[in-house]
């Protein structure tokens, strides 16, 4: 807090004492609000962590404190990593997510460029229409999808997810990219066109490098969505070796009416690790990428 009082931004005016005090109170208020929400947001993950460190006997024992682990053990993690198919599911999730992100980015960057920079017949409708695809819920689509996927011979196959997940990611990514491209000054394309560059060259040489923060933001979004997707995997993947993490955890660690809570929590926390790392390292780009596109939308 002391650093705030020394903040250089305070304008040197006569009222500046009161301003400083105001700022300080605002900051204290801010920290209180933050603390409240951090407690709210972190309670379940904290409880997950504690549960993941307990043996199943301790979890079943009602006399202990559920929020604290008495005899911590890494057994749940160890068993997940050495027995069963958890690593296979993890690998599948990585494959599916990587492919989905790549495909989504190719599709949405190309489309967004055309929609933002090359007005053509129906482009406005298409830009709106793309977003409207979210109106059709997954729970409605998966039944007709059974036939499509079945017809392609991809039922119970990991690659079906690579095919389907882009429907979840592409519309929003396209929207982010349209916003970002729109924020790039028009002078850039003019200059490029004058130099005789084609639109494709322009996209590749100028727009993509300039729009990298936006692309990163869209990638992170696509990553989050396809990492967490649940309905399609549970509907289409049956064999354990084809499953991704979300459905793998649910179907391998719950046996009829028996839940292996310790392992479920351990599995969930490890499943949260990749997105957590991505956000930890790329968060600033994410915000920067959204920022430029944000006001344009």
């Amino acid at each position: 807090m002391s650093s705030t009082t020394a903040t250089p931004f305070v304008p040197a005016e006569i009222r500046h004492g009161s301003l400083r005090r105001e700022r300080r109170w605002a900051l204290i208020g801010a920290y209180v609000a933050l603390a409240v929400f951090v407690v709210f947001f972190m309670t379940p993950p904290f409880h997950m962590l504690m549960t993941s460190l307990k043996s199943s006997g301790e979890i079943a024992d009602l006399s202990g404190n559920p929020w604290i682990v008495a005899a911590p053990t890494l057994q749940n993690y160890w068993e997940l990593l050495t027995e069963g198919n958890y690593l296979v599911h993890f690998r599948n999730s990585v494959i599916v997510t990587a492919c989905t992100v790549a495909i989504s980015m190719v599709i949405s960057v190309m489309a967004a460029f055309a929609l933002a920079r090359m007005k053509f017949w129906g482009s406005a409708t298409l830009a709106t229409g793309v977003f409207l695809t979210y109106l059709v819920p997954e729970t409605l689509l998966f039944i007709p999808m059974f036939q499509i996927i079945g017809g392609l011979g991809l039922y119970n196959n990991l690659w079906a997810m690579v095919l389907i997940f882009p429907t979840l990611t592409v519309p929003f990514c396209t929207w982010i990219m349209i916003g970002y491209f729109a924020s790039i000054p028009k002078e850039l394309d003019e200059a490029a066109l004058i130099d005789g560059a084609s639109h494709l060259q322009m996209l590749w040489k100028i727009f993509i490098p300039v729009a990298l923060p936006g692309i990163l933001a869209a990638m992170i979004f696509a990553f989050t969505v396809s990492w967490a997707a649940f309905i399609y995997p549970i509907a289409f993947l049956v064999s354990s070796d084809q499953m991704v993490l979300t459905v793998g955890i649910v179907s391998d660690l719950i046996r009829a009416d028996t839940f292996q809570w310790g392992k479920i929590m351990a599995g969930a926390l490890m499943a949260a690790l990749p997105p957590l790392l991505v956000y930890a390292f790329l968060m600033d780009y994410y915000i920067a990428g959204l920022t430029a596109g944000a006001t344009k939308g």
Binding site: V38, M42, F230, A271, L276, M283
Partner: peptide, 14 residues
């Protein structure tokens, strides 16, 4: 970072 945690855990599992 802390405030983002709920968003990164796959919701089916959280």
């Amino acid at each position: 970072g802390m405030l983002l945690v709920p968003w990164v855990i796959p919701p089916a599992i959280s």
